[in-house]
Design a protein around this nucleic acid. Structure first.
Lengths: 258, 258
DNA sequence: TTCTCTAACTTCTCTAGAGAAGTCAAGCAG
DNA sequence: CTGCTTGACTTCTCTAGAGAAGTTAGAGAA
């Protein structure tokens, strides 16, 4: 629930942040417009540079503003991209677009992506998630997704070569089947459930670069996803989103009365 | 995936943060132990106070450390509490403990909670989520959950009085049935699915207080949950977790071949 | 027109302080 | 032994600068 009527504090940087926040919510600064610069705030409020920076940092952290060195601090979009698990994991996916493209279209954005596949050896973490031994061969695919040209999602997927090696779908971009479930079906692996673990954490330096996030204080949503055939994992994947830009929806059925 | 081998930077505060992070990972500072104070860092690294603070801020933001004014900065626990949707929404829940208590027990913690119910009028947001009109009467219940005595989850739930008013389960703490589904069953409302929307955002000042979070840079995971009988919502709820302390798991079935 | 350079911005990093506010243990008064 | 005060810590807020690094619009050259 939104509780933006925060109590007043006696701290100068909070006061300035609250004033700017109010101005943004009132519409004085529409999306994409420039907020007062550090020097403007220093002059207008008669404070030191660090205090002005702290005020802007509050707004940045709330996801209300984005700062770019040399360019200024602008009001960011507050619309979240909705990612729905419902209909995402289907045997018969759409032939014309991917779940990601549909999510982007729902948010009024043009979806686009790039990917790269390499053969690698399973790290201890990947081995654990795929029930392999460390060092076992896997295909590792790195994706980057763009919304209207700006990166909004990165992910990395691993599949055991013991399962896909030598088949038509050894590389995710090969073959005509779209999506892990349809691809695995073509080699007789019938995925029957998918597990998604959701966490939030600070963005790593690598993610800051790849997702074009602010250098200080950015956080991300991470989905650690695994496709299963019975108890056997056949694919695992890390999906990383900018924390303030996404909304993940899960629709959970409740079993009927016994 | 963990990528803690971040590239070196030419920034002093990042260097200091990297050294301290390394020391923590090496085990030099076990969980709960005190990190060097600002004054220690000023002396040891010959930097200004703000630079020392920036270094500690990096670790705080990563969830590696927690600062308390007057007391010091200590290494925090990195174990996440696992919240599993699997088995959470059941017609026949355990009689002896709640899902929350089981989650806490799995993390080796003693679970405890407090709650308070009032009658209220639906806000526009609550009305939208419950398909009511703004101002319609609802019961509003506020919960706070504790793990080993420390607050680790707060939530607020709303139910339309039009459904529960005058029944035995008008207030969630009344009656013998535990959980929304079992309670609704006793008045003939058969919940058949639950929708959970997961987002991450900066913690509000209110949440900082109620969850005992650091005053700067804290973020939370939020689940916006609604119980449905067919298309009709019968309960909606906001659940707020400290962002770096939880892991949410969803198990999604995949329909068999048609 | 198109390209390049420059000057005037912007944010980011950092120094060197000061005082407020909170914590905590030691020692003292009862 | 119990309760209170005191003092030595701690982090937090803020001042008043400086230079580095990145961006951008406009002037002038080709």
């Amino acid at each position: 629930m939104t509780d933006s009527q925060d109590a007043p504090t006696s701290h100068r940087y909070e006061e300035i942040a609250a004033e700017l926040r109010g101005a943004i919510e009132r519409g004085d600064f529409p999306e994409g417009s420039r907020l007062p610069s550090e020097n403007d705030i220093i002059r207008d409020y008669d404070v030191a540079r660090n205090t002005a920076r702290d005020a802007l940092a509050v707004l940045r952290h709330e996801g209300l503003a984005i700062a770019r060195q040399g360019s200024g601090t602008v009001v960011s979009t507050r619309k979240r991209i909705k990612r729905n698990s419902q209909g995402r994991y289907s045997r018969t996916p759409s032939k014309v677009n991917s779940p990601f493209e549909r999510d982007a279209a729902t948010a009024g954005q043009r979806g686009d992506w790039e990917c790269e596949t390499v053969k690698a050896k399973a790290s201890p973490e990947v081995a654990r998630r795929l029930s392999l031994d460390t060092g076992d061969p896997v295909t590792q695919t790195t994706y980057r997704f763009f919304g209207d040209g700006r990166p909004i999602q990165v992910s990395q997927s691993w599949e055991p070569l013991a399962i896909t090696g030598g088949t038509l779908i050894e590389r995710p971009e090969d073959g005509s089947a779209i999506g892990v479930i349809a691809r695995m079906d073509t080699i007789g692996q019938a995925v029957d459930h998918v597990v998604e673990k959701v966490t939030a954490r600070a963005a790593s330096r690598e993610e800051v670069k790849r997702l074009d996030l602010p250098t200080r204080g950015a956080y991300v949503l991470v989905i650690e996803r695994t496709h299963f055939v019975g108890d056997a994992p056949v694919e695992t994947c890390d999906i990383v989103f900018p924390g303030d830009r996404y909304e993940l929806t899960y629709d959970i059925p409740v079993e009927l009365k016994a």
